[in-house]
């Protein structure tokens, strides 16, 4: 879907992208980075809207520097910021945007009705968008990116400003864009946590450089850890120490963290069974058992070390 080779973008004062080489395949890909990491600059270059200082980028097999207009015809873009005129209805607006993408009038109308239904906008689509909630506005912004049935959509921080419920709805909608509509997605965020569940692949950039690019599955495999907390008993006054020793004997590494919490490295699925059996054999109560995943800060620390 997307290939960049040594992609560099320098502005007079800052280097926004610094030799970025990454391959992004079909599916849902999360582009993670803190503010100013170069996410928006990358999108700009991918759409052929600014020339790269060095290196090259290809989207859908088209060269971003020379075939920007062909790319823009087959790609949808949802900006981070508000971009909807307040005095126009969602239907009117999305029809206009569909025509801007080259769809004939009747097709534009049909696709608009379809797309607005898919993103979950009902009767309110005939009302001026000034009165919409943030969640509804985000849906319209997504709809205008999907209305011309692109092969790829670029979503810039689509969960920004949404409450937790709205965030979950948006994330499951993004999942559907790929699963049900068959459209590949590149979605940016500054939070790794929220994209793990949604994405097949994660790309982490910082300071315009690539930190990581790997599938979400391998991400969690490598970084998965299990945190447990056990009760103490008369036989084992310090329960967590006893469990640690027993686990070590079974070949599982556990390290004490804050308080009574033990952090266990998950090297395979059998670890869960070993932990359960060990705790049960010692006759202790398992108070807590939860998945620990690395947060973006830890990815950065790893990269620096």
């Amino acid at each position: 879907m997307i290939q960049t080779r040594g992609l560099t973008k320098r502005y007079p004062r800052v280097t926004a992208l610094d030799g970025l080489t990454v391959d992004i395949g079909p599916g849902v890909t999360g582009l993670i980075g803190s503010n100013g990491a170069g996410k928006s600059t990358l999108i700009k270059l991918l759409l052929g809207l600014a020339p790269a200082t060095e290196g090259s980028a290809a989207v859908l097999g088209l060269d971003a520097a020379r075939e920007g207009d062909a790319i823009r015809a087959r790609v949808g873009y949802m900006p981070e910021h508000d971009c909807l005129p307040a005095d126009v209805s969602a239907t009117e607006f999305v029809v206009h945007m569909a025509r801007m993408s080259g769809l004939p009038v009747t097709a534009a109308r049909e696709r608009t009705a379809d797309t607005l239904r898919h993103v979950g906008l009902r009767e309110e689509r005939y009302r001026p968008m000034g009165g919409y909630s943030t969640g509804m506005k985000q849906r319209v912004k997504l709809a205008q990116a999907l209305v011309h049935d692109p092969s790829l959509v670029l979503l810039d921080e689509p969960t920004n400003g949404l409450d937790p419920a709205g965030r979950d709805e948006m994330l499951s909608l993004i999942r559907r864009v790929h699963a049900d509509f068959g459209i590949s997605v590149l979605v940016t965020s500054h939070l790794l946590g929220e994209l793990e569940r949604t994405c097949d692949h994660i790309v982490v950039i910082d300071g315009g450089r690539l930190l990581r690019s790997q599938s979400t599955a391998s991400f969690t495999e490598v970084t998965a850890a299990l945190a447990i907390e056990v009760t103490d008993s008369d036989a084992h006054p310090r329960g967590s120490d006893a469990v640690r020793a027993a686990l070590a004997a079974a070949g599982v590494t556990a390290a004490p963290t804050v308080g009574q919490l033990l952090e266990i490295e998950v090297t395979g699925a059998e670890v869960y069974d070993i932990v359960r059996d060990t705790v049960a054999d010692l006759g202790l109560g398992l108070v807590r058992m939860e998945q620990r995943r690395h947060r973006i800060a830890e990815v950065f620390e790893e990269a620096q070390s």
Binding site: L47, L49, D69, A70, R72, A73, V75, G76, Y77, P79, H81, D82, C83, L84, P85, A86, D87, M97, M100, S101, G102, Q144
Partner: peptide
């Protein structure tokens, strides 16, 4: 002015028109 005020420009320029 309305296109500027509502920041609609990115939606135009992410499409084929220049």
């Amino acid at each position: 002015s309305l296109d500027l005020r509502y920041k609609t420009m990115p939606l135009y320029f992410s499409r084929p028109i220049t």
